[in-house]
Amino acid sequence: MTSRVILISPASNPSLRQARFDDGRTPLDESGTARAGAAAWTPRSPARVLTSPSLRCRETAAALGLREGDPRAELAGLHVGRWQGRTLDEVGSAEPEAVAQWLADPASAPHGGESVQQLCSRIGQWLDSEYVADDRTIAVVEPDVVRAVVVQVSQAPPTVFWRIDVAPLTATEISGRAGRWNLRVGRPLGGRDTDG
């Protein structure tokens, strides 16, 4: 039994461009919607479509022409507690030690939300559940969810989480069989899905 999951990062929106901790309610702007529409993508075979619950992920799925996605709480981005809605620069100026600790220690959560380690564990549990699905899944998810998938699949330590760049509107693919995931990262979207 083989499962294939294609993770798509959302189009840019003002929060992504401003390095703002998104509250999940910020829509795509005109530019993000246009870029997602230009990358419209057709899966080769039927697939179930999932999304992070954020508005930008749901709107990206729609702009890509994917059928309506099923928002999943377990695919939510990293919850950053009281930093939600603020920019990284604002938080860095107000709480420089907390930001430094957060970026260096994946187990820390000085914002009162979820640690990187907890996010990676949550995404690992979701990946374990994907083994039972003998199908293709397309998931439009937050960049930090893609990072967590890469950490889990490559069995890397969570300390590499912040070293993984995830560009907007790229696909990261995993396929699994017999208790093992294979990884393909960073494919730009556009046109028809030509693989399996």
Rank of each mutant, 00 (worst) to 15 (best):
Ser121Glu: 15
Glu74Asn: 10
Gln125Met: 07
Glu95Tyr: 10
Glu68Trp: 01
Gly24Gln: 11
Asp23Cys: 12
Ala100Gln: 14
Val141Phe: 06
Asp89Phe: 04
Thr60Tyr: 08
Cys120Gln: 08
Gly24Pro: 12
Ala40Phe: 05
Asp22Thr: 11
Ala40Leu: 03
Ala47Gln: 05
Ala94Val: 05
Val99Lys: 00
Gln117Leu: 14
Gly81Gln: 10
Phe21His: 13
Gly32Thr: 09
His111Ile: 01
Pro96Asn: 07
Arg25Ile: 05
Phe21Gln: 00
Glu30Phe: 02
Asp135Ser: 14
Leu28Cys: 06
Asp134Glu: 15
Arg56Trp: 05
Glu114Phe: 07
Ala61Trp: 03
Pro27Ala: 13
Asp135Trp: 00
Ala62Cys: 03
Ala98Thr: 02
Leu55Ile: 13
Gly85Trp: 04
Thr26Lys: 02
Ala34Ile: 07
Ala76Trp: 00
Asp89Gln: 12
Ala36Ser: 05
Leu66Lys: 04
Ala98Pro: 04
Arg48Ser: 09
Gln18Ile: 00
Leu64Ser: 08
Gly92Ile: 02
Gly24Arg: 12
Trp126Asp: 02
Thr33Trp: 08
Phe21Ser: 02
Glu95Leu: 03
Glu114Ser: 08
Trp83Phe: 03
Leu119Pro: 10
Val99Gly: 00
Arg56Val: 14
Phe21Asn: 04
Asp128Leu: 11
Cys120Asn: 11
Cys57Phe: 02
Pro106Lys: 09
Leu103Thr: 02
Glu68His: 07
Ser45Gly: 00
Gly24Lys: 07
Ala34Asp: 12
Glu130Lys: 00
Arg17Gln: 11
Leu75Pro: 03
Ala36Phe: 13
Ile123Asp: 00
Phe21Asp: 00
Glu74Asp: 15
Ala63Trp: 05
Arg82Gln: 10
Pro43Lys: 01
Trp41Lys: 06
Ala40Asp: 03
Asp135Thr: 13
Gln101Thr: 12
Leu88Met: 08
Ala19Val: 08
Ser52Tyr: 10
Val116Thr: 12
Pro43Cys: 10
Ile138Trp: 08
Arg20Ala: 08
Gln84Asn: 10
Asp128Arg: 14
Asp105Asn: 14
Val80Gly: 00
Ala38Phe: 07
Ser121Pro: 01
Trp102His: 05
Thr137Cys: 08
Arg122Val: 09
Ser129Gln: 15
Ala133Ile: 06
Ser52Lys: 03
Gly124Asn: 10
Glu95Asp: 01
Glu95Trp: 07
Val140Lys: 14
Ser52Cys: 09
Gln18Thr: 06
Ala63Gln: 04
Ile123Gly: 05
Ser115Tyr: 05
Arg122Trp: 14
Gly112Ala: 01
Pro27His: 06
Ala104Trp: 03
Leu119Lys: 01
Ala73Gln: 14
Glu130Leu: 13
Ala76Cys: 10
Ala104Pro: 05
Arg56Glu: 08
Pro53Ala: 10
Thr51Arg: 03
Cys57His: 06
Ala104Cys: 02
Ser129Tyr: 05
Thr42Phe: 02
Arg86Glu: 00
Ser129Asp: 13
Pro110Asp: 07
Leu64Ala: 09
Trp41Asn: 06
Arg48Ile: 09
Gly77Val: 06
Gly113Phe: 09
Gly77Arg: 02
